[in-house]
């Protein structure tokens, strides 16, 4: 419990800054919707005229930007990228920092097993990720509701945030696994952010070239896309199963490799 508390305290400041960032993105993003919605359907025409690669990169796809949920679906992609970066950096740092800051010689000579340390750190990062998600959810509900002139879309927002939570957990555990696996702690952040970037670009590529469709199982950015969630009104079962399998494998990797690890001091 003491390690858990210590981690919560150590991450408090950065979590607050991230939450302010989310508040700003949701707020300013939805404020633009107010301007867009006055132009009627012309925004969809404008977007349709853009090159398809640009459309894919911006994550527009089949979203109807004239509706509040369609527009929020576009904003959702940016929130997901932000949340994924946050989760990946959190996971990589929380595991590597004892070695990076050379506090490993303090912590790991205490009468605790490495399993205990990992459990406390994973626990703390899950709580942090939940706080991040709840803050985003709250901001989204408030701002979407404020600019919405039609029927309530709160249930859609909650569904999307559920998808974002799955993405956060995925990248959190992937990055702890990478951090436990790599020999030198300073490489854990570059590698995890690298994975993030590659999987994101892959998801854009899949949108552009239909023959790459099989790759959608490889990149988590395809698991919980706004256009699918809004269209189906629920998660795709096979992606949920795949997510849980990936998470379980990552958690296992984290424990197994961290226990065997030669701490780099």
């Amino acid at each position: 419990m003491n390690i858990f508390k210590r981690e919560m305290r150590a991450n408090r400041k950065s979590l607050i800054i991230w939450c302010i960032g989310v508040l700003f993105i949701v707020g300013s993003g939805m404020a633009k919707f107010a301007a867009l919605s006055n132009t009627g359907d012309s925004i969809n025409k404008l977007m349709a005229d853009m090159p398809s690669s640009l459309q894919a990169l911006m994550g527009i796809g089949s979203l109807d930007l004239a509706t509040v949920d369609g527009y929020f679906g576009l904003l959702y992609l940016y929130l997901v990228i932000m949340a994924s970066i946050h989760a990946a950096m959190l996971g990589a740092t929380i595991i590597s920092k004892e070695e990076r800051d050379k506090t490993a010689e303090f912590l790991f000579v205490k009468p605790i097993s490495r399993t205990t340390v990992i459990t406390a750190k994973l626990g703390a990062s899950i709580v942090i990720v939940i706080v991040f998600n709840l803050v985003t959810l709250l901001c989204s509900i408030i701002f979407v509701d404020y600019f919405n002139k039609g029927d309530s879309v709160t249930s859609e927002v909650v569904l999307l945030m559920g998808g974002m939570f799955m993405m956060q957990l995925l990248f959190l555990f992937l990055s702890t696994a990478v951090a436990a696996f790599v020999k030198k702690p300073k490489f854990s952040i570059p590698i995890t952010t690298g994975i993030l970037l590659v999987t994101f670009i892959m998801s854009v590529g899949i949108d552009l070239k239909s023959n790459l469709d099989g790759l959608k199982y490889v990149t988590p950015f395809k698991y919980y896309e706004a256009k699918n969630l809004l269209h189906d009104g629920r998660f795709d079962g096979k992606f949920v199963v795949l997510s849980f399998l990936l998470m379980a494998a990552s958690i296992l990797t984290t424990y197994v490799f961290y226990r065997k690890r030669d701490l780099h001091i």
């Binding site: 210590r6 150590a10 800051d101 050379k102 506090t103 010689e105 303090f106 000579v109």
Partner: peptide
């Protein structure tokens, strides 16, 4: 009880 050659602590 262990005293390392260089001591580093949390910020």
């Amino acid at each position: 009880g262990y005293l390392p050659s260089e001591v580093f602590y949390y910020e």
